[in-house]
Design a protein around this nucleic acid. Structure first.
Lengths: 195, 195
DNA sequence: AAATAGGCTTGACATAGGTCAACTCAAGGT
DNA sequence: ACCTTGAGTTGACCTATGTCAAGCCTATTT
């Protein structure tokens, strides 16, 4: 099953360890393929995030809606990323976020309890989890610094340099929201930077 | 040594596991007590963050200086928090941050290589690391959301509710920088919210 | 082919928050 | 005791970005 091949490759590459045949069987048995169509929700605000998904194909956004009804995108996710509200997933509390497919989405999903098992039983999986958690911490720190220290224009240029795929895959108003800008501001900003 | 008692308690409390006498000896042997005076630097921008510190007493700030010479505080740290630029510490790359004692500081410090050992040898330590990493991820997500969705006033109220100790321990201009505000703005904002 | 909807741009205007400068007050160092 | 230094406040003004509204273009639906 080609879905799982990509998944196994990913785990082995990130962890630097090899998956045994047993490991693979275990993963195959407990990660369920699932499809979501564009606009479908993976998670709704107020629900507990019971599942974590590994994105095989497609994209999604994690966002909140504030009191004024404005949406704020906190995360844009593509292939080979994990999809979940980790706070809700770890603590089993109702989520403050929505997660919605922006393109047709194919994921492999599993539950918290099963992830705990994988962490215990599969060394490559647990090594991967550690690396991902490091990467997350680093990425969050960078994003936080950018939000605090950089102007709108600098943040946009940062994104162009670091996540050029985003520009291909996501409409500009989503990018704007991800950067914490109104769509109008991003539009003007691009015009000016071309000069 | 009372320093270490507090440290052991912390590990056991966070991890939910017990430290054996051997564990404690290992930790005592490889965490070195260190003191920094107010204003002293734990880490300077451009240096690799070779040490991680557990704060026994005192406080510190992690900040950057932008091209215009303005400082931005990314993290304020108190007792029972870890002190490090994790990006630099994990990857051994030069840090973009400065870490400075805001009050006289007593820490227990160790190196990356030794931490790896502790993770392998001490189950309570490794369980603690997982919990902390979860907490970190959650806290970062919240802070990111706050930075994107909330006004200056809302972010301040959030801080008053969630980290009231900060108001006691840190001068107002540090709080302002932590919130991404100028000191003047925070000052005015407080005046108005008293009404 | 017409109709509709979504995304993008542009203009005019509004506003939150930043900047600069002056003043006050408390604290620490000598 | 004196002097300096740092923190906080306040006022006047400035600027980046948001808001609202209109119009345009492309793609999809009918």
């Amino acid at each position: 099953m080609s879905n799982f091949e990509a998944f196994f490759d990913y785990i082995q590459k990130i962890s630097g360890k090899v998956l045994s045949e047993d490991d693979k069987h275990l993963l195959t048995a407990h990660f369920k393929p699932k499809k979501l169509r564009k606009r479908q929700y993976f998670l709704q605000e107020g629900d507990v995030c019971k599942y974590i998904g590994f994105i095989v194909k497609g994209s999604a956004r994690t966002f909140t809606v504030d009191e004024k009804g404005h949406e704020h995108i906190l995360k844009l996710s593509l292939e080979n990323w994990w999809l979940a509200d980790f706070e809700s997933f770890y603590l089993l509390t109702p989520s403050r976020f929505n997660i919605e497919a922006l393109e047709d989405l194919e994921i492999l999903q599993s539950t918290n309890a099963q992830i705990e098992e994988f962490l215990k039983l599969i060394p490559a999986f647990s090594a991967m989890a550690n690396v991902i958690s490091q990467n997350y911490t680093i990425a969050n720190q960078k994003r936080m610094q950018a939000a605090m220290s950089y102007s709108a224009e600098e943040r946009y240029e940062d994104l162009v340099n670091n996540y050029p795929q985003f520009l291909q895959r996501f409409p500009q108003n989503m990018i704007a929201s991800y950067l914490g800008l109104s769509p109008e501001t991003l539009s003007r900003l691009k015009k000016n930077s071309f000069k």
